[in-house]
Amino acid sequence: MEMDLLSLVEQGGCSAKLSAAELNEALAELPKITHDNILVDIETHDDAGVYKIRNDYALIQTTDFFPPVCSDAYDYGQIAAANALSDVYAMGGQVLTALNIVLFPAHLPLTILKEIMRGGQDKVQEAGGFILGGHTIANDIPIYGLSVTGWVHPDQVTTNDQAEPGDLLILTKPIGTGIIISARKNDLVSVNAYEAALDNMKHLNDKGASVLNQYGIKSATDITGFGLLGHAMKMADGSKVSIRIDSQKVPTLPSVMELIELGCIPGAAFRNKEFTEGHCHFEQNIDYNYKMLVLDAQTSGGLLMAVKPDKADDAINALIESGYPVSTIVGEVIKRNNQSVYVY
């Protein structure tokens, strides 16, 4: 396939997500719903909704879709699917079924669409789930994603509102996909670094979810569009605690720090900066490049989990053995302070 899908996306590097502030405003006046069976709703900005069917069985529902993040259609399909499935894993669950969500330009060759959907299908299959159908609409630019249903034992739901002071924060994947994609659009990144980013985005968080269950971890989230800082902030606010992040400990994809130094900072990072401003504090002598790193919008990022200190080493070892080799402690949970997150 000759076509570079990235060339179809107009705003190079400045990604498609509506800002959190705009979203909050749009949702503000919708009536709040409560029901005994609803275990997790929109209230805490969690990754997915959870609905209890029986005392030992709850459904997880989520959806995620976006325009191309990479050049190749099959890669794109896999990444969009891995990203959508990730929300189920962030709740501590496993995947059951999925539906395709497809917007596709009528003038593009259908082979591209086939490849995108083959990528999605392969990832859902790898996750142990089944695609049951979907919906397709003609549109100016391609958009692909999934609506996913998963399940979890109600006692094992990991939400973003149960982090407690003293917990250590483990991150399972390196940061920097936003920066690498943006560099790719402008031909500034080596093939190796680009491929490392693709592999990172395709990597399912399924085994991370198993580690959540195995170590009785209560609070976790996946790192996506709002960046490490934005998602840590949501966890801190949801849990009514504060979080400290050691920016030097944050694992990065190859070439990321050099690209930030060059100025290859996508617009989404600045948008995340606006959204976290006033709620997050940066130590005064922190290097500017590290600030932008924790603000970089991720696609299909890793899990951020709040783990009791006595279980942290074992959890990290289990994560490394399950195929997340950079898993490491990037911060800690402290009592609620003036700011949601402190980055040093």
Binding site: Q11, G12, G13, C14, S182, K185, N186, L188, L262, G263, C264, I265, P266, G267
Partner: peptide
């Protein structure tokens, strides 16, 4: 130039 090339050029 598309984002973030203007920033790269500015830094340079």
């Amino acid at each position: 130039m598309k984002c973030p090339m203007p920033l790269i050029e500015t830094k340079k």
